[in-house]
Amino acid sequence: MLEISRLDVYYGVIRALHSVSLHVGKGEIVTLIGANGAGKSTTLRTVSGLLRPLAGEILFEGEDITDMPPHRRVALGIVQVPEGRRVFPQMSVGENLDLGAYARKDKAGIKQDLERVFSLFPILAERRKQAAGTLSGGQQQMLAIGRALMARPRLLLMDEPSLGLAPLIVKDIFHVIAEIRKQGVTVLLVEQNAHMALSIADRGYVLETGRVTLSGPAKELMANEEVKKAYLGG
């Protein structure tokens, strides 16, 4: 579904990605793990179009999208849940969800997806009129995910969905990610919480200072001694 090859990305003169290649198959959950600054978010932001690579290629279902602006990628079904949630704080929960469906015109489908989001996160239905900035961190993360689902994603890019959340809520969020995949959405997940990420993913890539150093099925990575030592706390 997603094919990234030899991606080089720079921030000014600082090289953030060195020839990163990876692929995500339809229906998979693939996770990128690694330390702070390893290039996980950079990879995700390049896939969503917020960053442009200096070299390399991104194919989505065979189509070259390397130079496509972000809003057109959303129309193709590539939707990112950004790091830090980034809900629109002064807009209501309902308006945030409406914006998720901004690129769509199928009113019936939008309404259906709204119901789906509300059944996934009942709290959002309760808080529909409330300004998004007044929600708790966990609720904002639910809103960010719900908002992304309103775009009817085919590939969902999730950037650190557990960041800053209480362990109990993190569990809920991961449960939801599994649920979303069951509904047929492919997920590319960036996480610092490598244990959680690998337990839910099919495959994983380990990034170190902008390079892919290891990849394979999630179970194998979890069993890998180096991964254990570096990312799984023993």
Binding site: P69, P82, L99
Partner: peptide, 12 residues
Amino acid sequence: QDREAAALMGVN
């Protein structure tokens, strides 16, 4: 409110 987030919603 957030230009990047708006772009990620499909806003041109």
